[in-house]
Amino acid sequence: MSLTLARGEVLGLLGPNGAGKTTTMQMITGNLAPSAGEIQICGIDLLDHPTRAKARIGYLPETPPLYRDLTVEEFLRLAARLHRVPKSRVAQAVAQAQRRCGLSDMTARRIGALSKGYQQRVGIAQAIVHEPDLVVLDEPTVGLDPNQIREIRTLIRELADHHAVILSTHILPEVETVCDRVQILHQGQVVYTDSIAALKQYRGGHALTIALRRPPSAETLQALPGVRSVEALSEQRFRLLHEADTNPAETLVQRSVEHDWGLVELTPAETTLEEVFVHLTQSDAMEQAAP
């Protein structure tokens, strides 16, 4: 697999469990050594100069690495010092990270006594306290309530102004709202990579879901003008993919009346990220994968 990211960009890393998202992130952050290949952070080779490269990365693993006995401020100070923030600038960096993550009122609280949402924020604050060029977040919204999820997403969007962000998640709408670009991993391979904008264009409604009481053969449906392919969802339901400029809906209704197919449902289906995802990550469907 190959992965490139520019400053100011949020890359979403998607994939089913065990696809290699976390492994990829561990390699980028130097927690796991790759058996082959190279990793460059801002042009610095991670394997040759691990210390210099790591200073430019902030990492929030799946389980935030928090010392529960420390207060928020003590912990962030430690994280700043560990990431080689000069002593004179530690206080300022900690205050800024706390402000950005909405932790300013919690500075003196013990981390163990904080709620999960705030602990997650401390985790993110820890990852940005040294102003890294690259922020790597592994499933940052897992286990949060919907309000907290929205706040964290806003925060991630804000981070993208100053940093490059890599984000992994299973939550598909999250990727659509937060990321600029998405890569789908499956069994350690990149099976899809494109910008979210392209994906949104792609889902412009070039598919119809229909249900017929007395369906004709698939070939008959396939023969309708403009229909590119027919996918049987069940015995009576079908999905028709069609060309962008010709919509077969009208012809379909006419034919249905003429031949007594018994049309009971006709909905323009959107190709969502979820469909792309499901399509690409089910191994048997891999050959006919959409772009």
Binding site: T29, G30, N31, P50, T51, R52, A53, K54, A55, I57, Y59, P61, T63, P65, L66, Y67, R68, A79, L82, H83, R84, Q126
Partner: peptide, 14 residues
Amino acid sequence: RNQTLTLLISAPVS
């Protein structure tokens, strides 16, 4: 066990 070792390993520390 608490998975806090990641903090040290991800930091620019040998």
